[in-house]
Computed example of a mutant assay.
Amino acid sequence: MSDKFIFRFVAIVTIVVVLLVVLLNRHLIPGPAIAPAFTPYLPMLNAVINGTCTVLLLVSLYFIKRGNITMHKRLNILTFCLSAVFLVSYVLFHYLMRTDTVYGDVNRDGKVLGSELTEYGSLRKVYLIILVPHIILAAGVFPLILLSFYRGLQMQVEKHRKLVRWTFPFWLFVTASGVVVYLMIRPFYHF
């Protein structure tokens, strides 16, 4: 396959995934009237997957620093597969669950309580400081992960290394911050 084909493929997949996530988060794709019983467990599953991917990325780095390409490759394939499961679970959750969760909760008038100087006000700012780069980098690192994975599987070592210098820290931040975001928003789930 040519580089041109790979870049087009990655661009199309990225656009489709990002567009799907945006449409789901804006509730522009109708889901079922009643979510299946397993739906409330998906965010916890996603946090577990993110935490596992964080550990796997660090262990993968350990092995490549020691020259163990086979273990590095196996761990990255596992991490890539788990990240794909995460993506399916994330999309499924946002398709099935039609309500938004707001950090700090809302009062009866719909006003976000965390925006006031309440017990959640300061923590809401911390939450948003973590959430915003998490979202931006999650979208931005997606094509880098696909390209890095492809270059690694093709044993295009120099191209893989150049990409991974950016991909690794961003992917690591996204997986680790995903766990933190879950732990911070979990008390405000109402399902």
Rank of each mutant, 00 (worst) to 15 (best):
G121F: 00
R108P: 06
S60A: 15
R186A: 14
R66N: 15
F9G: 07
V13I: 14
P169G: 03
R74N: 14
V17C: 07
V126Y: 02
T14I: 05
F142D: 10
L137H: 01
K159V: 00
C81M: 15
T175K: 07
V55Q: 10
V174P: 04
R8H: 09
G121V: 06
L147N: 03
I145L: 13
K162A: 15
L183R: 09
S83A: 13
H27M: 05
M184R: 01
L42N: 01
H72I: 06
L96E: 10
L172A: 11
T54F: 08
L87V: 00
R161H: 13
V157M: 10
L23R: 03
F38I: 15
Y189H: 12
N76Y: 02
A138P: 04
S83R: 01
M71E: 11
Q156S: 13
R108Y: 11
E116R: 08
L131Y: 00
R74M: 12
K162E: 14
W171I: 04
I145Y: 03
M155N: 14
F7R: 11
F80S: 12
V21C: 11
L92D: 07
E158R: 10
L113I: 15
W166M: 11
I145A: 11
V157R: 11
L58R: 02
F93M: 04
L24K: 05
L172S: 08
E119N: 09
F168S: 10
Y150K: 05
S115Q: 14
L57N: 12
L96D: 01
G51M: 00
K159A: 15
R98I: 03
L87P: 02
V112C: 03
R8I: 14
L20G: 08
G178D: 05
L75I: 08
G110V: 07
P43F: 09
N50Q: 05
M71Q: 11
V132K: 00
I135K: 00
F9R: 03
Y103S: 00
R66I: 08
M97C: 06
F170H: 08
I29Q: 04
P133T: 03
R26K: 10
V17S: 12
G121L: 02
L45W: 06
K65V: 08
C53A: 11
T175C: 11
P169S: 04
A139G: 13
Y120E: 13
Y182R: 04
G178Y: 04
T101L: 01
K4H: 11
V88Q: 10
T14N: 05
V17F: 10
Q156H: 14
F9T: 12
C81E: 06
Y62A: 05
L146R: 05
F80C: 08
G110E: 04
L92G: 11
P133F: 02
R165C: 03
Y95K: 01
R108K: 10
V55A: 14
V16E: 01
F149E: 08
I77F: 07
I129V: 14
L117C: 03
V174E: 05
